[in-house]
Design a protein around this nucleic acid. Structure first.
Lengths: 248, 248
DNA sequence: GCTTGACCCTCACGTTACGTGAGGCCGTAC
DNA sequence: GTACGGCCTCACGTAACGTGAGGGTCAAGC
């Protein structure tokens, strides 16, 4: 088992990325190499492995922030992630094959051998697996429901009422937490149920199981955590635990 | 032959890009649709074709400015460009296959079934065909020779002398052009030869044929044209013609 | 004709992911 | 000690949009 160390210039050259890129990834906390006494970066095999993961996800179009979250998961499972990346790369390869078909058809069209619709010409340039994963990940949330224009059938009053109700619930969760009540107290559980009903009513059908999944997401995904914690620091965890208690 | 027109939202949806992106491409002059009396954008089949070309090149990693240049060539050859894009897409597809192989090997490594070097882990993330084309395109130029550190064996004085000589030649070309001499006059031809010898001496072996190719590039590629024209507007063409005369 | 809602426009600030250059330190060979 | 390639941090700038504001347009329904 070789445990060589590489300078930043060596890594940059091998990987075909710039030194600046590696600096950036260090700053962002994505790939943080060891440092010499003089401040030089030294990349050992762990750092190389991490860089590989980052570059795979980058290749697949994931924003660096998302890459960071995925790789920072407490239950980080390297082999599971590699499998996932493989799946996406295979999908991307298939999409490329489609694009090649599209070009072949475009060449035939240019030669007068066929006609193409706008659809045929422009299909295949959709976003990559990051968008697909976002859909999967957000599929059970109000954020995605928003983007699906679930609210298009509501009046402005309805929209306002729905938003107000969401804010009320969040505020009451905040109060409850500040009052020192535990996250599995009857009041917390009641509030969690109110939250579930709110989602069920305004956004989409929401079973207790789905609600529990959602609660997990609130503490696993920074964007959700931020949403709750802006009301009160630590609220995301509190709400998540209340939801779990409600679902039990 | 259907000649439908699409609104910007329709095109965005079909192509999987944002309206903002299409605005941006309009601003940049890449895909400029017709406009209604009220200012709405209408995309006809010509605009759709242009967008397709842009999206193919974007897919391949070309910067928009370069895409604009390629598609703005006076001798724009749609079918030639499509063939070129196909070639690059096939190459990209092959590179993806390599990455999939790399993941498979990484999975085996994780399971203790094999060992990988840093090289193996990080290979394949090189830049796409844009970088390859840049290499091709710039391969015969001093700009690329620079990046190849051709000068690494020279002293600072040598580097300065080389630069000074280049500036002298450019200045003399400028004077000659301002004096009204024709680009195929003996003086111009002499200067072109001096330029070729300069390249031959300082940068890389430069035959008259290669020099002629370079001269073509000076008027075909905006970056070269800019280099010469900053000395004197129109100088790139003058130099190119002098080089052609010298190579005859 | 009026209302409504989806879609369009321009404007402009902001974000993401680096690119680039300045100024200076470090490591190695001569 | 000198020279040169490589390293560091700092910081401004770029490319390619994302996002929101404020308001006009279009088409369907009443």
């Amino acid at each position: 088992m070789s445990d060589m160390e590489y300078s930043i210039g060596e890594v940059a050259k091998i990987a075909g990325v710039s030194v600046r890129t590696l600096h950036h990834y260090d700053e962002k906390g994505l790939v943080v190499p060891q440092r010499s006494a003089t401040g030089y970066r030294h990349y050992d095999s762990a750092a190389i492995d991490m860089l590989q993961q980052v570059l795979f996800f980058r290749e697949l179009g994931f924003p660096l922030a998302d890459i960071g979250e995925i790789l920072a998961q407490p239950d980080f499972d390297r082999i599971g992630v590699l499998r996932r990346q493989r799946e996406y790369l295979v999908g991307k390869s298939a999409r490329l094959s489609q694009l090649i078909d599209t070009i072949d058809r475009a060449i035939e069209e240019t030669q007068g051998e066929r006609t193409m619709s706008a659809d045929e010409k422009l299909k295949g340039f959709d976003q990559g697996p990051h968008a697909a994963e976002a859909k999967e990940r957000w599929g059970d949330t109000e954020a995605y429901a928003h983007s699906q224009k679930r609210l298009s059938g509501y009046s402005k009053e309805d929209v306002e009422a729905a938003k107000q109700e969401a804010e009320d619930i969040a505020a009451r969760f905040g109060e409850l937490m500040r009052s020192g009540a535990s996250s599995d107290s009857p009041q917390a559980v009641q509030l969690a149920e109110a939250h579930r009903l709110h989602i069920d009513r305004w956004w989409y059908p929401c079973s207790k199981q789905m609600h529990a999944n959602l609660g997990d997401l609130y503490v696993q995904d920074q964007r959700f955590t931020d949403y709750w914690d802006k009301h009160e620091p630590g609220l995301a965890r509190f709400v998540s635990e209340a939801i779990t208690a409600n679902a039990a």
